[in-house]
Design a protein around this nucleic acid. Structure first.
Lengths: 159, 159
DNA sequence: TATTGTTATACTCTATAACTATA
DNA sequence: TATAGTTATAGAGTATAACAATA
């Protein structure tokens, strides 16, 4: 049926780039609503997750942790600070740097978003059983970790 | 070590959105070189893959097959046709539509890119053994297929 | 001289609306 | 009235360069 319906048998459905593109855009679609009331959207969520973990990092350390450019971090934090989800204070040990802290409001909002995202992710992986979904998460995380290492340390390598 | 090095223990490395974002951008990074001499880049590659498969589709059918907007398809094909990688001819059965055909030059170029991409993909998945890499490809493709179905047929559903 | 944070700029990708010619 | 293709426009995301303050 030329000009008409589907294109069957195209090698597309085994193409890795095609799969990554579709999964990525599908995730964005299902996650948009969950992060809609976060100023800065999905990237702000990643920042809050990183901040909720440990010691207050500098903006640069934070940018590296979430794989965002430091120039993006600036106005992302401007937005988050304006909504009192994070605060910035000078680093006593380096007067160039500013430490970023998550507020109690920020933690509360993060919990809400986290819960909503969990539902959205389940919807995305709805066709996978528990084992396959866990497997996919694990493998993606492994590739992501090595990808981050490779992109962060091009000049810190042994050369 | 506040303000200094890594942020360990942040829940980030088990976050699905973070993993998808990083894998997606890492893939783009390793694939960029492979598709560099294709006018239209990664999206043009997808178009050529879809065209190499079966009967010449209309632009709209093609756009649906590769999950691109039909407005994108227009100038993507303009570019590909200018480089003689595809041709367009009127559909004898519908004078509004144009059928898209891949040329011999297009097929040859596709083969080159395909080979180069295979190397790049191997580099991306370098930390996974054969079984895990195959598993990841399979699971991603499954999620991608359902994602495409869900995004293509919101009005074709039983409502 | 190098680094942290900031600002400005440009380029890509995506989404939307409006227009034409057909059906 | 609806569909195929085209054109134009606006928005998000990303990347880069340049600057001030500090190390």
């Amino acid at each position: 049926m030329p000009g008409g319906g589907d294109i069957a048998g195209s090698g597309l459905d085994t193409d890795l780039g095609w799969a990554i593109r579709l999964v990525s855009s599908a995730f964005r679609r299902v996650a948009t609503e969950s992060v809609a009331d976060l100023p800065g959207g999905a990237r702000a969520y990643l920042v809050l997750v990183a901040l909720a973990g440990g010691e207050p990092p500098s903006q640069l350390a934070l940018a590296k942790a979430v794989s965002l450019d430091r120039t993006v971090m600036t106005y992302l934090l401007d937005d988050l600070e304006a909504h009192e989800l994070v605060t910035r204070r000078p680093d006593p040990r380096d007067r160039r740097a500013r430490l970023v802290l998550i507020t109690d409001t920020g933690r509360a909002r993060l919990d809400q978003v986290r819960h909503s995202l969990a539902v959205a992710e389940t919807r995305l992986l709805t066709d996978l059983d528990d084992h396959d979904a866990h497997q996919l998460r694990t493998l993606l995380s492994r590739v992501a970790r090595t990808a981050q290492r490779d992109s962060v340390a091009p000049d810190e390598a042994d050369c």
